[in-house]
Simulated assay, not measured.
Amino acid sequence: MFQKYLKPLRDAVAERWLHRVSTPLAAIAEEQGSAVERLHRWFEQLMTLKRQKVLNEPELFATYSAIAQEARGVVQAHIDELVSQVAAIVESGISNNEFRVTDPQVAAKAVFQATVRFHHPAHASELSDPNIDTDFAQVWRLVVAGLVVGE
């Protein structure tokens, strides 16, 4: 009987939780300046937000993960929003002749997927790895080499 009310409730909880991630990232995406620097800061912020949730609020994170499993549409919309933010940064990098790629949406999705280990909930247990920042730096160098003009 209450099942019909649970899905909208789960979706609303997941959406609110995910909004706490996307809002500060949107501010970075909308800034002016070097696209390379903004893109790096955007991903560092994403990693920081996810790491804080996993390490500082493990029980809440576990609850969110369970809710997110049921709110796949909300989660996909969140991912689409994040990729769009990355695409906006990439597009500005193309306009400023910083990036050599031609399709900002394709590049954004590829960069997002290349960094998934550092922000996806499925990899939450890895976020406390003492080498995670070093690993990200290595992946980041490869990502930037694929995007930047003259690299």
Score class of each variant (00 low, 15 high):
residue 2 F to R: 13
residue 2 F to T: 11
residue 5 Y to D: 15
residue 5 Y to A: 15
residue 5 Y to C: 12
residue 9 L to Y: 11
residue 12 A to D: 14
residue 13 V to M: 10
residue 16 R to E: 14
residue 22 S to Y: 02
residue 23 T to M: 10
residue 26 A to T: 09
residue 26 A to P: 04
residue 26 A to M: 12
residue 27 A to S: 13
residue 28 I to Q: 07
residue 29 A to C: 10
residue 29 A to W: 02
residue 29 A to Y: 01
residue 30 E to A: 15
residue 31 E to D: 12
residue 32 Q to S: 15
residue 33 G to C: 10
residue 36 V to W: 00
residue 37 E to R: 04
residue 39 L to M: 14
residue 39 L to T: 02
residue 40 H to E: 15
residue 43 F to Q: 00
residue 45 Q to C: 10
residue 45 Q to A: 15
residue 47 M to D: 07
residue 49 L to T: 08
residue 50 K to M: 15
residue 55 L to G: 06
residue 58 P to I: 07
residue 60 L to D: 14
residue 62 A to L: 08
residue 63 T to D: 14
residue 63 T to K: 13
residue 66 A to E: 12
residue 68 A to D: 04
residue 68 A to R: 07
residue 70 E to W: 06
residue 70 E to D: 12
residue 70 E to G: 08
residue 72 R to C: 02
residue 77 A to D: 10
residue 77 A to G: 12
residue 77 A to W: 02
residue 84 S to C: 05
residue 87 A to F: 02
residue 92 S to V: 05
residue 93 G to L: 00
residue 96 N to E: 14
residue 100 R to T: 08
residue 101 V to R: 05
residue 105 Q to S: 13
residue 108 A to R: 00
residue 110 A to V: 03
residue 113 Q to W: 05
residue 113 Q to A: 12
residue 114 A to C: 12
residue 117 R to D: 06
residue 118 F to A: 10
residue 119 H to I: 01
residue 120 H to Q: 09
residue 123 H to W: 07
residue 124 A to D: 07
residue 124 A to C: 09
residue 125 S to L: 04
residue 126 E to P: 03
residue 129 D to Q: 05
residue 130 P to N: 09
residue 130 P to W: 04
residue 134 T to I: 12
residue 135 D to Y: 08
residue 135 D to P: 00
residue 136 F to P: 05
residue 137 A to P: 01
residue 138 Q to D: 06
residue 140 W to E: 03
residue 141 R to T: 03
residue 141 R to S: 04
residue 142 L to I: 09
residue 143 V to A: 06
residue 143 V to W: 01
